[in-house]
Amino acid sequence: MRKLLGKTAIAALTLAFATEAMATEWNVSLWGKRRAFTENTEKLAELVAEKTNGEFTLNISYGGLSNNRENLDGISIGAFEMAQFCAGYHRDKNPTITVLELPFLGVETLEQERELSMALYEQPAVKEDLARWNATLLMPSPMPQYNLVGLGDAPRTLEDFAGLSVRATGGIGAAMEAVGAVPTSMSATEVRQSLDSGVITAAAFAPHAHMSFGTIENAKWWTTNLNPGTVNCPVVVNTDALEGLSDEHREALLSSVDEALDYYVDNYTNNTMSAWGPALDERGIERISYDADALAAFRDQVAGPAAEAWIADMSARGLPAQELYDFATAKLAELKGE
């Protein structure tokens, strides 16, 4: 009996250790709080856990693992296995994907932004760029066109933008600068305080972020259709961690990307955008719309020069900038059926 119990105990311990060895936990670095922008990652975690019966889990942290501007650095050293970041936060770290942040690129829908991003992420130059950080691009966080909320007098003409201090990153910042505004780059979590203290008088965000970070709480106006561009914010994984997964767990992760993005786009379209109009109305925020001539003048003044400057800058760094720009614009035209 003693021998039988001994063998049973050993078998139980062996099974326990084997089960523990099969379990995989990844740490995921996000920031702020759970919101429409993070629903792709939240859904991904849910799907992965379901497909692996809880053997592969994504532990999502909102600011507890890294500063949002240092998420790519954390990925590079393996401080965590997955993270979200925005290209415009540190364009020198990820120059190739900033092509999608050029102003007035012409993206019209979240689906176009999604498909364009996924296609660009597969380009060899882009993969090589992110490989410097031991990072593999997993999926985008598609966002609609940014617009501005602000305090004080609203900019009703292009001339009114002169001297406007605005939080705007990447290509949107370039667009603002081209019409005489003074763009300032800061992380999303700093914007509300900067508005309230008068450091800036306007901020460029997608609707979900204006609501999540409180920029509409004291705002007086909102530009409905300036649509200068958006930012590209991918979710990346540590390449070594990805390659170290079992075949089953890697398949569970990669096969869940499309479904996570489907959920994200549906949630943003049907929940976030439906809440946006009422949120403005409740706070008495004035909607500022520009006529077709003003928008055309804005594009003419900004789009071409910004693209030319980006191509020249990136080419000087040895990147295939013209090829990346041509790929992005041709792919977008294809997605739009042009």
Rank of each mutant, 00 (worst) to 15 (best):
209 A>P: 00
143 M>F: 05
183 P>Q: 07
188 A>R: 03
203 A>G: 06
159 E>R: 11
168 A>F: 01
134 N>S: 09
164 L>D: 06
147 N>Q: 11
169 T>W: 13
193 Q>K: 11
132 R>I: 07
182 V>N: 11
157 T>F: 01
146 Y>T: 14
157 T>D: 13
144 P>H: 05
175 A>T: 07
153 D>E: 15
145 Q>G: 12
175 A>F: 00
168 A>G: 04
171 G>D: 07
194 S>Y: 06
188 A>Y: 08
161 F>G: 04
179 V>R: 05
165 S>D: 15
151 L>M: 15
168 A>C: 09
198 G>F: 10
209 A>E: 09
198 G>M: 02
156 R>T: 10
138 L>A: 05
197 S>Y: 13
164 L>Q: 10
170 G>F: 00
195 L>R: 03
185 S>Q: 10
145 Q>M: 06
139 M>W: 05
190 E>C: 10
158 L>E: 07
195 L>M: 15
164 L>H: 00
137 L>I: 14
190 E>G: 06
196 D>M: 10
175 A>I: 02
204 A>K: 01
132 R>Q: 12
202 A>C: 08
153 D>Y: 04
178 A>V: 01
198 G>V: 13
204 A>S: 15
180 G>L: 12
194 S>T: 03
162 A>E: 15
140 P>C: 07
183 P>M: 05
177 E>I: 02
151 L>N: 08
197 S>W: 12
189 T>S: 12
141 S>F: 01
183 P>L: 01
199 V>T: 09
156 R>G: 01
185 S>D: 14
168 A>M: 09
167 R>V: 09
150 G>C: 11
135 A>L: 01
180 G>Y: 07
190 E>S: 14
172 I>R: 00
167 R>K: 15
165 S>L: 08
191 V>I: 14
191 V>Q: 00
137 L>T: 09
173 G>A: 10
172 I>W: 00
184 T>F: 12
177 E>M: 11
154 A>N: 05
173 G>E: 11
189 T>M: 13
190 E>L: 11
170 G>I: 03
186 M>C: 05
207 P>G: 08
168 A>W: 00
208 H>T: 12
193 Q>C: 03
207 P>R: 02
181 A>L: 09
199 V>A: 13
210 H>S: 09
145 Q>V: 02
204 A>C: 13
210 H>D: 06
166 V>Q: 04
